[in-house]
Design a protein around this nucleic acid. Structure first.
Lengths: 144, 144
DNA sequence: GGGTTTGTAATATAATACGTTACAAACGGT
DNA sequence: ACCGTTTGTAACGTATTATATTACAAACCC
């Protein structure tokens, strides 16, 4: 999708928060579930907090919790919160402007990528974290 | 879209071949239009030849030409020919299998990415190189 | 006040992509 | 049949990006 795994990890994070049922979950615990470093988790959560998808609480017995009901958080919300640049597929594409093809192809490709990207985003917009968590059952949704 | 610019350059290449109206075009000429090294172009063309979208001709006065009519080459054909790995967005995502969330989230995400990817590919499948070239007009479609 | 946690900077390491050089093999024109 | 041209591909260098890790200030609860 994008080369990195920020979106995948973010969906994992939010699913874990749902799993923990509103408790304040520290980054270290989430990191253990994702199997990575807590700082990596906090960096993603920083973006998710800015997007108002998650609440953060500092200090002892602090941690992270969802800011909305799972059914109100679409995967597109997450995608847009953590995915950086919309320079889709044209990182270092700079054709020769003196060539009649090179001069016009860039704008055409941008429109083209926008359509492809929009199709994908529409798909992501139709799914929520609640849908993802529904597929996680049956895991002890009342225990722990 | 994918982080690299192989697809963008490939669409440029095929558009250029249409622009040259069936003539055998050497990689050096295409490279000048894209503004990169001829080897980069040949590497992509190697994949396009394997996918039977392009014909290659060695030797003096050789070069590349389209293997089909522009209207018969979809952008999805190109995308699949040159885009490498379908490990969409999960490059190094390997959650903790001992955690009930980590153990199941991977398969869920794969299904999710597949749906998002399919939506994008459907969009690409609905467009052809002929559509792209149509947007290039008016460039001297009969001149050199 | 003390221990815990977030927030973020700085740095290291690995993966990936693109650019470049080099050269063998195939081919066409003369 | 030769000679210049072009493809095809390997090998290597460099830049960019992503993730991991260490470090530490700031905020917070008990």
């Amino acid at each position: 999708m994008t080369g990195n795994s920020r979106f995948a990890v973010s969906v994992h994070i939010l699913s874990y928060l749902v799993y923990k049922q509103g408790a304040a979950v520290p980054s270290s615990e989430i990191a253990a579930s994702v199997d990575t470093n807590p700082v990596v988790i906090r960096r993603l959560l920083s973006a998710l907090v800015k997007a108002r998808l998650v609440n953060a609480q500092k200090g002892a017995s602090g941690g992270f919790s969802l800011a909305s009901a799972p059914a109100n958080i679409s995967l597109l919300d997450i995608y847009r919160a953590v995915e950086p640049k919309p320079s889709y597929g044209m990182r270092n594409f700079a054709p020769n402007q003196k060539c009649p093809v090179g001069a016009k192809i860039e704008a055409i490709l941008q429109g083209l990528f926008f359509k492809a990207q929009s199709a994908m985003e529409t798909e992501l917009g139709g799914m929520t974290i609640a849908d993802v968590v529904a597929q996680l059952r049956p895991i002890c949704s009342g225990k722990r």
